[in-house]
Design a protein around this nucleic acid. Structure first.
Lengths: 204, 204
DNA sequence: ATAATAGTTGACCATTTAGTCGACTATGCT
DNA sequence: AGCATAGTCGACTAAATGGTCAACTATTAT
């Protein structure tokens, strides 16, 4: 019973957008409220702080993202195709964001993680957790690729860490240079790191 | 004539430390002044804003850093040894910072670059510039290694970009996970990316 | 219908923050 | 010595920011 509202999800949407297009430190509660068209009183009705809102927003966002990733990294898909699809997917998103905001934005978790990592709190934990999930998707694909004899990767966990470092680094470069095209070579870069034999001319 | 002072360098030292151990957004002018033991009036005597201080601080810091890098990347040193030395050097610094601050801090330029990149200003430009310099050190070493037949890298610029993405990604992972040991494999990772033949058991 | 409840609002307060200014002080130069 | 000048200081303002609250409103279950 009582009143119903979508103010909570509006706040979560707003904070995600602001954090991605700007930064944690430069995003104020007033800004979030304005973008969400919610008064500050309502903000504090739902959340205790900016940090807590960010945690819940990233958690909820990750839930839906995870569903997409589960599809993309399905064991029904050839291991290397999973990675290929993921690269294409990310590239497309970055292009869309560039289109929408005029800026390459990189990875929200990685950028935010770097920014808030020395603050020590729930937010940092949540971000570490999400990044670790991402690594596990990669790791599983690499393990399967190894098992299928497509690549030689006796330590899939290490390879996954290495590739994630490269990939997140590349995304961050794209953000810093405001240039999505940096990501053009991500697939071939990853495949080179995996030791995939042919560069595959993708069906001339 | 007139009074002399090292307040300006104290301010630059202070801001570098604060930006590295915290973030741009969470660092206030009051904080900088307190750490530098300088009153705000004096701050504005030397600098117009936090951003301008940061630009000058990074510029000055880069000058001295460049001298070190010139030695490390001297053409007198074997190309692959340059990279090896650089990895060791970075690892050592990260360890010292962890010792000193209790935190792995990663690369100040890369972290700050990711944070301020959407603000569009002098600071972002300066950081892009410094990161580009770093890439050129790598590129030159890779080109020399290729010429010496140590590796196969017909496009040293592309390889350098790729390796820098990986290396900065790794440093940022170290910061996010607060774990310097992430960098343990940086050398072997880079050498693998360069296609160096033997992993070299470094003198059993 | 109405009572209980979930959500909204705007006015308000305290603190932090950026930024200014004029008076002051120490130092090098002649 | 004493003047010009580089640098210091503290007190100040205005604005931004985080956070609170009591009164209000819409919905829903009975």
């Amino acid at each position: 019973m009582g009143r119903v509202s979508d103010a909570k999800v509006r706040l979560m949407d707003a904070v995600l957008e602001l954090l991605w297009t700007n930064s944690y430190g430069s995003t104020t509660i007033d800004q979030i409220c304005e973008k969400a068209r919610v008064k500050k009183g309502s903000f504090y009705y739902f959340f205790q702080s900016k940090a807590q809102l960010a945690v819940e927003a990233f958690e909820t966002n990750w839930q839906s993202k995870q569903a997409e990733l589960d599809r993309m990294f399905s064991p029904m898909v050839s291991p290397l195709d999973r990675i290929r699809k993921y690269c294409e997917f990310t590239y497309k998103i970055q292009q869309e964001m560039k289109q929408k905001y005029g800026r390459a934005l990189g990875c929200p978790q990685f950028c935010l993680g770097a920014e808030v990592s020395t603050m020590e709190g729930q937010l940092q934990k949540k971000i570490q957790q999400i990044l670790d999930c991402k690594r596990r998707y990669l790791e599983s694909a690499i393990r399967d690729a190894h098992a299928a004899g497509l690549i030689h990767a006796p330590d899939p966990a290490a390879k996954a860490r290495m590739i994630l470092a490269y990939y997140e680094g590349l995304l961050t470069q794209a953000r810093i240079q405001n240039d999505v095209e940096v990501l053009r070579d991500s697939e071939s870069g990853i495949f080179a790191m995996l030791g995939v034999k042919e560069p595959e001319t993708t069906a001339a």
